[in-house]
């Protein structure tokens, strides 16, 4: 076990917890286009986000034992478990993003630390710093095409890929977990901006926001 100080960021106290988009819902609302909608937008708030840093070989063994997933070794790859709830994404040659259901991140971090022992690594809990937006529907790719500088054509962006790129001038991770679903991992501080951008850009497709 490493001697790093850790603590569970989720408290038992009954304090109200708000998603990064709570303010946006109040200020900008959540448009409903109904049946004519070609685009669905949903925030998956309060998930557990961990950043793993270290050598691929050391981390791979620990991640496989603890999480049951292989660490993606190739650039821009995304690995998910069968349920699609837990995922690991390559961010850089020594950095990976793990997303797990909310509440699982601290036990996971503890187990990984125990497993890795005195190896050279770092784990940071960034759950409070970013949020995950999910876009789906037939116009999802069209929306991305007018928003990101990266080529999102299926030939360049197959399922199981994830890249960090520029999304409407904000740094955003764009992932494609399945054929018809795209995920954006945005900074908490940029969440309102990205949300309003998505509403504006999605207006022509009749965006449907699911809260």
């Amino acid at each position: 076990m490493s001697n790093a100080a850790t603590f569970d960021t989720r408290t038992d106290t009954a304090i109200p917890v708000e998603s990064p988009l709570a303010y946006s819902y109040r200020r900008s609302g959540a448009p409903q286009a109904g049946g004519s909608s070609r685009l669905q937008l949903r925030e998956r708030a309060m998930l557990g986000h961990l950043i793993l840093r270290g050598g691929a070989i050391v981390l791979d063994e620990a991640v496989r034992d603890v999480l049951g997933l292989n660490l993606p070794g190739r650039p821009q790859t995304l690995v998910q478990d069968a349920s699609g709830e837990r995922s690991i994404q390559w961010l850089s040659p020594d950095e990976w993003l793990v997303i797990v259901p909310g509440g699982e991140e601290f036990p996971l971090e503890t187990k990984l630390r125990e497993h890795l022992g005195s190896a050279h690594f770092a784990i940071s809990d960034v759950s409070g710093g970013q949020t995950l937006l999910e876009i789906s529907g037939e116009a999802a790719r069209e929306l991305l095409m007018k928003t990101v500088i990266y080529d999102v054509h299926p030939s360049n962006f197959p399922v199981g890929k994830g890249v960090t790129t520029v999304f409407a001038k904000a740094t955003t991770i764009i992932r494609r977990p399945s054929e018809d679903r795209w995920e954006l991992v945005v900074r908490r501080s940029f969440a309102d901006y990205c949300y309003r951008w998505l509403l504006d850009a999605g207006a022509e497709f009749g965006v449907n926001v699911q809260q």
């Binding site: 190739r74 650039p75 821009q76 850089s92 040659p93 500088i149 990266y150 890249v163 790129t165 520029v166």
Partner: peptide, 12 residues
């Protein structure tokens, strides 16, 4: 050379 693909200048 780390990402293994071409990217826009805006990212650099």
């Amino acid at each position: 050379p780390y990402c293994g693909e071409h990217r826009e200048e805006e990212e650099f």
